[in-house]
Design a protein around this nucleic acid. Structure first.
Lengths: 257, 257
DNA sequence: AGAGTGTACCGTACATTGTACGGCTCAGGT
DNA sequence: ACCTGAGCCGTACAATGTACGGTACACTCT
């Protein structure tokens, strides 16, 4: 990254911002909320890396440095953006729990919701999540997502592990999809056009090497999805497999109870 | 990112570099290989984002712009780095296949090997992988990893989906672990110190809100792992679950044969 | 041996980034 | 009417990737 030291965001400062109430408009109407909203709108289009403090300021018709009155820096701003988009994820604390289909239906619902945010705001993948772990919305999300797993006989650690597994899968798959989309946008080439462009170079250069399985499977996948991969298919295949894998664990625990 | 246009890497140029033979030392001993090795060594320590062309040049005792004689730009350089670290992943094309334990043992072996590279070179997580998909080493890796799944009765698409699921899981978990480590390094704080620092702010600010499940489970996890998460545990829990989930699919297909 | 030529090498310049610093300007209290 | 403090912002700086144009060396051909 460029610029001055870009000092690591102060956790305590971030937390205060995250949990505090910010309803003091100032004399040009500038608010933490307005800044975060503007930043999210811009990031949705261009990504976090392309998002600059100058762009945010310009969109708000405000001097660049005015932002720093309300937000310590870009790092803390991304923390706020992150917490914000997870704010409306669930209608209430029991929405997944009230889903039909028991724990399995609940986890499917959770996966689908997370998938939706991730695809609506692909820049989330660029946010270092470790440090934001304690924002108010994130904490509520954790509570909401854990509840359907409570009382099934699982240990606390198992509950966390199961949830983490599902969320990691959704995130990884969504990330791959976002990357695919972004690559297409950046290059202006669709998957097919891209393939046509590199195809001659590839055949020239690949002559003499034989990868029979990779060749056959790669071709099948390409024909089936018209692409090198289909994120939606990967999501459901993986989710089904994971839930199938969790079933014996949960039924054995429930039986003991 | 800063700097000039930073034009998207030319796929064809990357491919030529990836597949071509580069054994022309030039008059100051500068080689594509040497550049890539230096870049990898630096990235291992500081990450991709902190890696700069100036740093690479300095390490090689060479002017910055000399690098551009051998490598079109930073984007293509990262492509080369990516392909390079996957070069020695497997001893031969049948190493996973020859593992004991059938397809399950093979997938466990594959997961472990991928985990090792990912933790040895955490910057891999920052590489946009879509465009590199066709490097020689990556293609061989795909072949090697698919073979243990061949002949089990799975369709080509199912073979690819199963492998992708395992690799996505390993990558996601490794990424979380890398992020955790990096956050610690950057802040100079261990998990415990970090917790002590934000704890007072948190209790002040969290008063009045009740998240019973999150609180109980979070505490249990923290006590069990001395941290908010344990990547190694997440890896094995998830892998076990996924393989358990794949078992019915594979046995049903094999039965039909 | 001498001349010519292409390629490896690199110094400088520039646009772009995050943000430190210090000044300006106003709202509100005394 | 004046003072004070907070919101606002112009300028400056360090760091980045790399375009551009120049320099110097290894080689080939005469």
């Amino acid at each position: 990254m460029a610029g001055r030291k870009a000092a690591a965001p102060d956790p305590a400062r971030s937390l205060a911002l995250l949990w505090g109430s910010h309803t003091k408009p100032g004399r040009s109407g500038l608010t933490v909320r307005a800044i975060v909203d503007a930043a999210i709108a811009l990031a949705d289009v261009s990504g976090l890396e392309a998002l600059s403090m100058r762009m945010v300021a310009e969109r708000l018709k405000v001097g660049t440095m005015s932002l720093y009155t309300h937000v310590p820096g870009k790092g803390e701003l991304t923390d706020l953006m992150f917490d914000q988009v997870y704010g409306d994820l669930y209608a209430d604390l029991d929405e997944p729990l009230n889903q039909p289909g028991g724990w399995r239906g609940a986890l499917e619902f959770i996966a689908r919701r997370n998938w939706e945010v991730l695809t609506a705001h692909p820049w989330i993948h660029e946010v270092p999540t470790m440090r934001t772990a304690l924002g108010p919305n994130i904490t509520r999300k954790y509570e909401t997502e854990l509840r359907p797993l409570d009382g099934l006989g699982l240990t606390d650690v198992e509950m966390d592990s199961a949830l983490t597994l599902v969320l990691t899968h959704v995130q990884g798959t969504a990330r791959a999809g976002a990357e695919q989309l972004r690559t297409q946008r950046d290059s202006g080439l669709s998957d097919e056009e891209w393939w046509r462009q590199i195809s001659p170079t590839l055949t020239t250069v690949m002559s003499g090497t034989h990868f029979p399985t990779a060749g056959r499977v790669g071709t099948s996948v390409g024909e089936h999805f018209q692409s090198a991969m289909d994120p939606a298919h990967a999501l459901t295949f993986g989710l089904t497999t994971i839930l199938d894998g969790l079933t014996p664990l949960i039924t054995s625990r429930s039986a003991v109870q």
